[in-house]
Design a protein around this nucleic acid. Sequence first.
DNA 1: ATCGACCGGTCGC
DNA 2: TGCGACCGGTCGA
Lengths: 374, 374
Amino acid sequence: MHPELAALFRSLTDLRVSAGYTAEAVEEKLVMGPGWIERFESGMDEPSFGTLAALLALYGHSLSDFFESLDFGDEAVIVDRHLAAEEVGESLVLHFPMGSHAAEVTIPDASLDEFNQVLLVLRDELASGSAREAIVNCFLKAVELWPHANPSDLWYFLVAHAYQDDFNHPAKSAGKDWAQSWKRAGGWSLEAIFVNHYNKYLATQGIRLDMPAPDEKKRLLGMMGLTSQADLEKSDVLVLGKAPDGSEHPFGVIHVKASFAERRTDDAPLSAKLIRSNYVSPLLTMDCKASPSAKPNNRGELGPVQGGLEKVSSKRLDIEEDRIFDAVFVYNRNSLPTPVGAATAARIYICTFADPDDSFSRHLIKKWKDRQGI
Amino acid sequence: MHPELAALFRSLTDLRVSAGYTAEAVEEKLVMGPGWIERFESGMDEPSFGTLAALLALYGHSLSDFFESLDFGDEAVIVDRHLAAEEVGESLVLHFPMGSHAAEVTIPDASLDEFNQVLLVLRDELASGSAREAIVNCFLKAVELWPHANPSDLWYFLVAHAYQDDFNHPAKSAGKDWAQSWKRAGGWSLEAIFVNHYNKYLATQGIRLDMPAPDEKKRLLGMMGLTSQADLEKSDVLVLGKAPDGSEHPFGVIHVKASFAERRTDDAPLSAKLIRSNYVSPLLTMDCKASPSAKPNNRGELGPVQGGLEKVSSKRLDIEEDRIFDAVFVYNRNSLPTPVGAATAARIYICTFADPDDSFSRHLIKKWKDRQGI
DNA sequence: ATCGACCGGTCGC
DNA sequence: TGCGACCGGTCGA
């Protein structure tokens, strides 16, 4: 909030006292929980026009009286946005609300100009095209400009919050719950991001990722012996390999998740079937998770590695011991991979978007070669 | 929005035109998606103070000038709330935002006075006690006052929205994301509601529902042969029965869900183990689900029954064919139960909160008797 | 402090 | 059209 506006709201106290009301009396009159009047008067929260008008009416004042003394001075008046950015030295600092905190996150070696390029991709494509295209292209622009940054941070702190800023969307879609919309559109976009990022390189290896339409998906899953409705609904991205004779054969399913929570077990039944039939069944995840904080740390949910003194999370054990996926590829640099040499049932790898020739590609290539008996 | 305030916002058009700006030019200057200026000027959306101040600054005006002509006249100025109610004839009409709609839902044979009693329970307990107690007591008050109403509607349209109204909470918790808070606190409260509602009656039958602390829960699950960490984390409410010698024995787990979505399969592995060991493993659910609409219909997610012409949902088949729970008790009068006489693997029953001696209680009592070999 | 499960508006099919 | 899976702030343990 602009400091002059905050100062003006502080003057509400005098108006209230002059009118002979205690804060509690006003809260009771307006049927509010305790403490709201104090918060408005301290400038901590901004009342809506309706609420402010109701308060002033109670105190015998008008909105016009009230704003008479307001002078923003030389300081720029800025629109309040869900996500704002500033350049600090060589870094970019993102500002956004997180729970009750005004959070800030630093993207090193990044400029405001680059930030605006990334944001512009989102805004322009949201105005003209589909949400999925907008999110995919915005994120891919971000990892292209900042290959050194943590992809999970760009996803969780930048793209997610930019998407949830009302004003980045065309006004015709106003009223949407952008947090819920992000879950749907973001989750779906993430699948497309991986397909988009890996396919050009994988094509050189005779492999292709695909998100086919339901009928084609059903046909391909059928070729892998998966015929249930649940398998159809749970499978995200299919993996296809080209045989020496040029024919294409499905040989696995990629599971995609922005974050884990308890939802990691959703895909387990399908994954178990794939693994039993010697198909690939890896999970690709941003492993986004931070506690609300003024300086949030996107530490992910996988926790410490096995063999140390700290408690090992059930999420890590599901993978490294129970092998609910045949491998997990995490695009969060803060997450801890399975240590090299550890004898686990399945492994966690850390990846970035810097080069598609990475451990995930090699996982697919190896399996495709193995299946062909080479 | 108050009509006078909407009229005032419409005057923004003149100020903008006088200042020589097109709507598009302002959107570009303030880095907004297309259409926002028109929405503000049409009174469809309320700008924040910061946004309004930025617009007026651009047009060479001040907030004080702007509000000078505002006169609310005789019409009452009311605070804008997330949930509002009015009495229409013998009914209560609830108003709340739902997606881009201003939604309304009618509770028949209910008064504004009763509504305020229900709301007061919530507000007072949120101010002084825990969120769980507040939600449990608010809902139980609602079903006590309105036993004829659809419990799922009271949960989903009344308690949920009342909880998500910032002003029903003490201001010290401002800034919370109440929609997310509702998911956590509401889901947990729902378990307590069932325990609270059924335990008095079940005690007369030697049965008790319990939500024990982790150590005790672990011990009781162990008695049923459930020792994994996942089973511990997934089990909500335990069912205990009293043997003729007075000793208490766990004989099942109650699964509780406000709504299904894809999350219904989360509990399936635990439930399968319980069923194999001849323990009870029912699901209790509000089956809340409505499409966003001006007149939302909380139709639930179970869809049409088997044997008709319409497509049967996989949610229904999971239960009636795959028996992922040994029975499902739905507190939504709009949901369709398994027809009497249908030969299904497990059944869906509709319940209310009018009398705890219902099909759910009988399900537990029968199983406890069977297990004792009576 | 860390770790866990809670759920519902969204939007493609 | 209605059904389906998408996910993250919350808050007890």
